[in-house]
Design a protein around this nucleic acid. Structure first.
Lengths: 136, 136
DNA sequence: CTTGACCTTCCCATGGTGGGAAGGTGGAGG
DNA sequence: CCTCCACCTTCCCACCATGGGAAGGTCAAG
């Protein structure tokens, strides 16, 4: 019943983080250095997989590496205040909002320009006119 | 009345593209190589500034460098079909839509998690629970 | 014992952008 | 004319997150 540790490839499958990225996360200090077998192979236990999954999930939610480092710190700190976690999350929501608004503005502009473009064989095109600075 | 060419710094101010980026655009072949003074200084005429402004505007609308290269090609091709421009623009709108949807999904998830987080001194926090894979 | 799948480290690429070092140029004021 | 400063040049490095691939070591199955 000794828990057999996983190799990095198995850990990648188990966590959903590529082996490349696991090494990278270790290198930049986001996750602790993995234990090594006598021959130098990294090996991973349940707790390590857990951390990797945490990182993957946070990436899926769009957190930056710095934010994830902070989240991992809070996760590992049993005396954290949930307010700190919430603040970090809401800050990220605000960032998302800003980026969404920016892209939405681009989208609106493009749709407006495209709606005036006949989109046929003729060369004249309000989209290019806008880009070239005409009539602005 | 000979048009005095601008230095790269002046071109940067006139176009809104930093000198760094002007050199970069030239290096990757996005814009043609600038003419040079005898001492090697790049110099820019109105037409060149026009191109740089085109690039800046396209970047503001979120087009990638590859897309901008294509747009510049169409811009310079008097026999272009406006349909080609429109297709490129609408493809970009679709890309924006996809990214917006992705970020919106992140936002929704985070808001839901945060709404269940009391955000006070206590350590227990549904946000961290979700990230750590609990109750999924 | 060979073979093939895996592991290791190392370097390079992406996409845009910026910082900065080391050295040359140009123009204005003394 | 000389000096000074702002500008120009090229070159390398950094970011963030990820992937590709080379060269060489390891392990297990056949």
């Amino acid at each position: 019943m000794t828990p057999i540790p996983l190799t990095i490839g198995e850990a990648a499958v188990a966590s959903g983080v590529s082996a490349k990225m696991i090494r990278h996360y270790e290198e930049i200090g986001l996750v602790p250095k993995a234990a090594r077998s006598p021959s130098g192979y990294r090996h991973y236990r349940d707790a390590d997989i857990h951390v990797l999954r945490f990182v993957r999930r946070a990436r899926e939610l769009g957190f930056s590496m710095k934010e994830i480092a902070a989240l991992l710190g809070l996760w590992n700190n049993r005396r954290r205040a949930s307010a700190d976690v919430k603040r970090l999350a809401m800050k990220h929501v605000a960032d998302l909002d800003a980026r969404i608004a920016e892209m939405h503005a681009m989208k609106r502009t493009l749709e407006r320009l495209a709606s005036h473009c006949h989109g046929d064989e003729r060369p004249d095109c309000p989209i290019l006119d806008d880009l070239s600075g005409a009539t602005r």
